Simulated assay, not measured.
Amino acid sequence: MTEQNIISVPMPVQGTPEASGELTDLLSLMARLRADCPWDQKQSNHSLIPYAIEEAYELGEAVQADDDEDIKSELGDVLLQVVFHCQLYAEQGRFDISDVISTLQQKLIRRHPHVFEAENLADEAAVKVRWDEIKAEEHQAAAARGKPHRRLDAIKAGSALMQAQEVQKQAAKLGFDWPGIEGAFDKLDEEINELKAEVRDKSKSAAKYNISEANISKANIRDIEKELGDCFFGLVNVARKLNLDAEAAALTCVHKFKSRFAYIETQLEQVGKSVEDSDLTEMDRLWEAAKQYEC
């Protein structure tokens, strides 16, 4: 191992640390948690994956809410995931946070020749085209190192809706797409009908799994799950054809539901009741009333 490749494992901070705002102090704090906190000691890079995803979503919600304190907190939680992963990989002797920062710097410099070199790009669209060209060159270099590359390998990780929409966009660029939105609607209708059939066809599932119809819900859940996934995928196709972001649409729906349900709770509290004291009829009436207050 050359001197340039020496992995630096941060030393744990001693005593009670202060919030200095310095990256080196944060790394030392993380090292201390790994040394002395039972929960942190048990974590692995794989066990942290759900937390990294969750924190990214919470950051998105904080940005939408536009509250500075929440945004700072959630950005910190995302940074924690980066620092935690780097600490673990450094302990394994694989790389440290300096390697991560260096890799990012190299990538940013490489993908912005119009900033750091003599290239002149007229507008944002030209920058995007050049960016994609450079990424393609990077994939070719990876293939030369023995890493196989397929058309959809470049799909970014994200929620299922995000990945579904990106998969469809890339496939469409290769000609694997309907010419208009009607094809997407027809496919969605087909998938919904197949889902209904799978849910209703207890006799088929009972025979398939050789069990009684009373236990069918457990037996055919995987088949139902597949059909449900096809429905989501079909609905994403419709969103893409309408030039809408499926993830944004779903999040809008979630926020709308939360807002309406909060209205229900508020109205019930004003008459001395709780959700548990109410029934579906009353809550549905308040739900309809909540629509009148939406922008």
Rank of each mutant, 00 (worst) to 15 (best):
70 D>G: 03
69 E>L: 11
57 Y>D: 15
65 A>T: 03
143 A>N: 09
174 L>N: 10
78 V>W: 09
143 A>P: 08
145 R>K: 15
100 V>E: 08
152 L>R: 10
135 K>S: 10
100 V>G: 02
98 S>P: 06
152 L>F: 05
161 L>Y: 02
144 A>H: 12
95 F>W: 07
75 L>H: 09
124 E>S: 10
55 E>M: 02
75 L>G: 01
170 Q>P: 04
116 F>T: 07
140 Q>C: 11
136 A>C: 03
117 E>H: 09
152 L>W: 02
115 V>P: 13
120 N>K: 13
58 E>Q: 09
62 A>P: 10
86 C>R: 04
97 I>V: 05
156 K>Y: 01
102 S>R: 15
83 V>E: 10
70 D>Q: 13
119 E>G: 04
162 M>C: 07
111 R>V: 01
129 V>P: 00
145 R>W: 02
154 A>P: 08
63 V>S: 07
149 H>L: 06
173 K>P: 08
116 F>E: 07
61 E>T: 09
95 F>H: 13
72 K>Y: 09
132 D>A: 02
90 A>C: 08
56 A>M: 14
131 W>Y: 15
175 G>T: 07
110 R>T: 09
164 A>Q: 10
52 A>Y: 06
152 L>Y: 11
162 M>V: 08
119 E>C: 00
62 A>N: 10
89 Y>I: 05
76 G>R: 03
127 V>D: 12
59 L>G: 01
68 D>I: 06
